[in-house]
Amino acid sequence: MPILTLRNARPTDAARCFAIETGAYEGDEAATLEKIATRIRLYPEGFLILEADAEVVGFINGGCAHDVVMSDEAFKELVGHSAEAPNVVIMSVVVDPAHQGKGYSTTLMNAFVQRMQALEKKTIHLMCKDRHVPLYQRMGYRYVQPSASDHGGMAWHEMVMDL
């Protein structure tokens, strides 16, 4: 069993996170290196890294908003982000394809939820593909609606968890 460690991201993690994101996501779905670096710099409390035996194998990141508009593409660069806002928007939950199927995404999600609760956030929002809706429902998210976003040229669904 590998030793798992959870920690907040550091600027030096950006390149590894970009490699994981581009390896795991389809087409234009992956964030750019610049977006990842911006998310780490502007809100490291919302960028959680998972290490297995000291190797970065996955991460989850998000930003906070007073009014959540899931189709807002600028928010992916944390334009409009306010660390004090009560609502969290998850932008990526991703595990290196070589480490998928080990429960790491659930580990990341559970730890992220606990950290956001400790920060006294009120809701966590995310968008997912159709095939992931049941997974997030099992984690406690409720379905909101099909999203107006066509990020990466794909269809998305909006979900929310009340904390």
Rank of each mutant, 00 (worst) to 15 (best):
M70A: 01
G153T: 05
Y43S: 13
A111T: 14
V113K: 07
V57R: 00
K129V: 09
Q137H: 05
Q137F: 02
A74D: 15
I49R: 05
M159Y: 02
A85Q: 01
R142Q: 13
T12R: 14
E29W: 01
A30K: 07
G23E: 09
C128W: 09
G152W: 00
E77Y: 11
A74F: 09
P86K: 05
V69M: 09
T22I: 15
K102I: 04
G62A: 08
A15E: 00
G153Y: 07
Q114F: 00
A155Y: 02
V113N: 02
A83T: 11
G58C: 03
M116C: 07
A19R: 09
S92W: 03
L108Q: 04
E51Q: 12
C128D: 07
D53V: 11
G103M: 07
A24F: 04
Y104P: 10
S149W: 11
A155E: 04
A31D: 06
R39V: 06
A24V: 08
D130K: 13
A155F: 01
N110C: 05
A111L: 11
G27S: 10
P97Q: 11
H132C: 00
T38P: 06
E45R: 14
L135R: 05
A37V: 07
S105C: 09
V69I: 09
G23P: 13
S82P: 01
N8K: 12
V56E: 00
I49H: 04
I90A: 12
T12H: 10
M154L: 14
M127D: 01
D162E: 10
L42N: 06
P44S: 11
D28E: 15
D28C: 07
S149N: 10
A14R: 02
Y141C: 01
R115G: 11
G62P: 06
T123V: 04
T123F: 04
P86Q: 04
V89N: 03
P11F: 15
V79N: 05
H66Q: 02
F75D: 02
A155I: 04
A111W: 07
R7C: 08
W156I: 03
R16V: 15
P86H: 05
T5H: 12
L4A: 14
V133L: 14
F75K: 08
D162Q: 09
V94C: 08
Q117G: 00
M127W: 00
Y25Q: 03
R10I: 06
E51T: 03
V89H: 01
E34C: 05
R138G: 06
R39N: 14
H157I: 05
F75I: 05
S82Y: 02
R138P: 06
A31Y: 03
D53Q: 13
T5W: 07
N110S: 05
